Amino acid sequence: MAIAYRQHIDDDTEFALWKIEEEANDLYVQLQLNEEEKAYVEKLSNGKRHLHWLGTRVLLRKMLRTDEYIDCKVDAHGKPYLVNLPYHISLSHSFDYAAVMISRTHKVGIDIEQIKEKVERIARKFMQPQELAFIAEEKRIEHLYVCWCAKEAVYKCHGQKEISFVDNIFLEPFNFEHHGVLDARLQKNELNIDYTVGYMQYQDYMIGYVKGDV
Rank of each mutant, 00 (worst) to 15 (best):
E68S: 15
H179S: 04
R57C: 08
K19T: 02
N25I: 09
D11G: 06
F15G: 11
R65Y: 15
A133F: 04
N168L: 03
V197M: 06
L59M: 08
V154K: 02
L171F: 00
M200K: 14
S103N: 10
K139Q: 09
E138K: 08
N192Y: 05
A133P: 09
L51A: 05
G198D: 06
I122C: 07
K48D: 01
M1I: 10
D67Y: 14
V108L: 04
Q30V: 01
G180V: 05
Y209I: 04
Q30G: 12
R185P: 03
L54I: 12
P86W: 09
E131D: 04
K43Q: 08
I70Q: 15
N175R: 10
Y199D: 11
L91H: 13
L51K: 10
E131I: 00
I20H: 10
Y209H: 04
F126L: 08
H143T: 03
K139W: 13
E42I: 12
A76D: 07
I112F: 08
G180I: 03
Y40K: 06
E14L: 08
A133D: 15
L59A: 14
G109R: 03
E35D: 13
N168R: 10
C149S: 07
K79I: 01
N189T: 10
E190H: 09
I70Y: 07
C147H: 00
N175C: 11
V154C: 02
Q128P: 07
E138Y: 00
I3D: 08
E117S: 14
N192L: 07
E120D: 14
M200R: 13
A99L: 12
G198I: 06
I102H: 05
A24L: 08
E117M: 11
A184S: 11
G47K: 00
H52S: 15
A184R: 00
T196E: 13
K211C: 08
D204N: 15
L85R: 15
E162D: 14
G47Q: 03
Y87C: 13
Y209F: 12
N189G: 02
F176P: 00
E152L: 00
E190D: 13
A24D: 09
G47L: 02
S90A: 12
E177P: 03
L33V: 02
E137K: 09
L144I: 00
N84R: 12
E36Q: 10
N46V: 04
Y28D: 06
A98R: 01
C157E: 05
E14I: 10
L191S: 08
I3T: 10
N175Y: 07
M127C: 15
T196V: 15
A153P: 05
I122Q: 10
Q7E: 11
S103A: 13
R124Q: 11
K116G: 13
V58D: 11
A16K: 09
N175P: 06
E120P: 05
M101W: 04
L182C: 09
E68Y: 15
K156S: 06
R6T: 07
H77F: 07
R185E: 11
I89L: 14
P173G: 00
E172I: 01
I141H: 00
Y205G: 10
G159M: 03
Q130D: 15
V197S: 00
V181H: 02
M1L: 09
V210P: 12
I112R: 11
E35A: 13
E142C: 04
E142F: 02
Y40L: 04
Q30L: 05
I169Q: 04
E22L: 06
Y97W: 04
Q203I: 12
L27K: 02
